[in-house]
Write a protein that binds this DNA or RNA. Structure first.
Lengths: 137, 137
DNA sequence: GAGAGGAGGACTGAATTTGTCCTGCTTAAT
DNA sequence: ATTAAGCAGGACAAATTCAGTCCTCCTCTC
């Protein structure tokens, strides 16, 4: 269906939250979940992925929580997608060649490959910084 | 996971098959399924979608089958995607606003919307004709 | 009128996504 | 030292979607 996952949406919301309302402080998952309006448990998973990718960094223990791990100009939408959904595979044979019956004789692999790159470029061209500019005029 | 459906892959293969090995004649689903190498029943579904969209046209009865419904320069990859997967919705709120908890306060809808349009443009920029050029040098 | 072949609804099984639960670890505060 | 807030992450359950099959009907050629 060529649709982005919910977890990605959660992650993107969380990052913009940290970038705006979370400046200079540590923000708990609970605060974000309450304020934005979705499940704390699930958002927590997204944050863990963002952390592993260095997009967010975490502070443990009481008074713990999350902050951004990099400047907003250094985080692109593609980074968030990669952190949360892993490497994109527009077609199945990108994951497993065996999953395609016609792998050896396939004529579109080249095209689908460049298409995927172009989509990644599209996502990579937007930083959180520029995204925020678009929001608040 | 931002992945294209299998049915779309089937459809794309079928269209290029018709455009190359099926010139000037009517091709049965069985032939395509056998030659390309996947399920006849399922390919049949894809063909039905393509037919409804006018990308393929069908002949019923004995000696029936499919032909292309338009010239290859007038069929884009986006057309095939639309025919088979329906209107694209990068985010859920495009399908149902209620499916998003933060619809009213959402900051990314505008961005996601233009992103979707850009992806559609990408698909719309490739015609079957140009795709075939890329394949056979 | 028999059989090849498309049309399409219904259904099933598999895979993926989404979300919850639980347990453990870290650390500030008391 | 103990407690409780909060992150980390594995395991599991539910829901949704996708993929594929089956069955019936209709159309057309021979």
């Amino acid at each position: 269906m060529l649709q982005v996952s919910r977890k990605f949406e959660y992650g993107l919301h969380a990052v913009t939250y940290l970038a705006t309302k979370g400046q200079g402080r540590v923000v708990t998952v609970k605060e974000m979940a309450d304020d934005i309006g979705f499940s704390q448990e699930f958002l927590s998973k997204a944050m863990q992925s963002l952390k592993r990718a260095g997009i967010a960094s975490s502070v443990q223990g009481v008074k713990g929580g999350y902050t951004l791990g990099r400047e907003t100009v250094e985080i692109t939408v593609a980074d968030i997608a990669l952190a949360i959904e892993g490497k994109p595979h527009l077609v199945r044979c990108g994951v497993k060649a065996e999953s395609c019956e016609v792998f050896s004789s396939c004529h579109h692999r080249g095209y689908m490959g460049t298409l995927q790159l172009k989509i990644q470029d599209l996502l990579g061209a937007t930083t959180i910084y520029s995204l925020l500019q678009q929001i608040a005029p």
